[in-house]
Computed example of a mutant assay.
Amino acid sequence: MNPQWLSDPELQSALHTLRHHLPTARPRVAMLLGSGWGGVTAHIEQPHRIPYAQLPGFPQPSVAGHAADVLVGRLGPHEVAVLTGRKHTYETGDPSAMKLPLRVLRAWGCEVLVQTNAAGSLRADLPPGSLMALSDHINLPQRSPLIGEAGNERFVSMVNAYDADLRTQARQLAQAAGHTLHEGVYVWFVGPQFETPAEIRLAQRLGGDAVGMSTVPETLIARHAGMRVLALSLITNMGAGLSDENLSHDHTLAQAQAASQRACEVLCHIVRHLLL
Rank of each mutant, 00 (worst) to 15 (best):
L140Y: 13
T180K: 14
V29C: 09
R74Q: 11
A203K: 08
A203S: 13
R228V: 10
Q175A: 15
R171A: 14
H66V: 12
H78P: 10
Q12M: 13
H16S: 13
Y52H: 13
G39H: 14
V40H: 08
T116G: 02
Q115W: 01
C268G: 12
Q257F: 09
E218N: 06
L181E: 08
R74M: 05
V271M: 10
E79N: 00
Y52E: 09
D250Q: 12
A64Y: 01
A231Q: 09
W5F: 14
A53K: 13
A258D: 11
A210H: 04
S13E: 15
G85H: 05
A164E: 06
H179S: 11
A259R: 00
M1H: 11
H78A: 10
C268N: 13
N152L: 06
K99R: 15
M132F: 00
A30R: 11
L11F: 12
V29E: 02
A133F: 05
L267G: 12
K99Q: 14
S13P: 09
A231F: 11
R272P: 11
P23M: 13
T116Y: 05
E195C: 04
S157M: 07
A107R: 01
R171T: 09
G73R: 02
E195W: 05
V266F: 08
L247W: 02
T236R: 03
Q46A: 09
W188P: 10
S130F: 08
L22A: 06
A133S: 12
H43E: 15
R262W: 01
H249K: 07
E199D: 04
V63I: 14
P217R: 01
P47G: 02
Q46P: 00
K87Y: 07
S233P: 10
E111G: 03
S96H: 14
Q142V: 03
P101T: 14
I44W: 03
H20D: 12
P9Q: 09
L247V: 02
E183G: 14
Y162H: 14
N237F: 04
R205N: 10
H273N: 15
V29R: 06
T89I: 05
Q142R: 15
C268V: 15
N117F: 03
L242F: 00
T196A: 03
L100R: 15
V271N: 08
P197Y: 03
V156H: 04
L71N: 02
M158N: 04
M1S: 09
H16D: 12
R223V: 06
L55V: 01
S248E: 02
L173Q: 12
L11I: 11
P9K: 06
L75F: 10
H224F: 11
D8A: 11
L242T: 05
N117P: 01
E149T: 02
Y162I: 06
N139C: 05
G241M: 00
P197I: 02
A150N: 04
G129I: 08
H182A: 15
R154T: 13
G178M: 10
K99A: 15
A81T: 01
V271G: 12
L71T: 01
D250S: 08
H269S: 15
G36P: 11
E153F: 07
E153C: 00
E195T: 07
V211L: 10
G120W: 07
P61G: 10
R262F: 06
M213Q: 00
I50C: 10
L105R: 06
V185G: 09
V70P: 07
G239N: 09
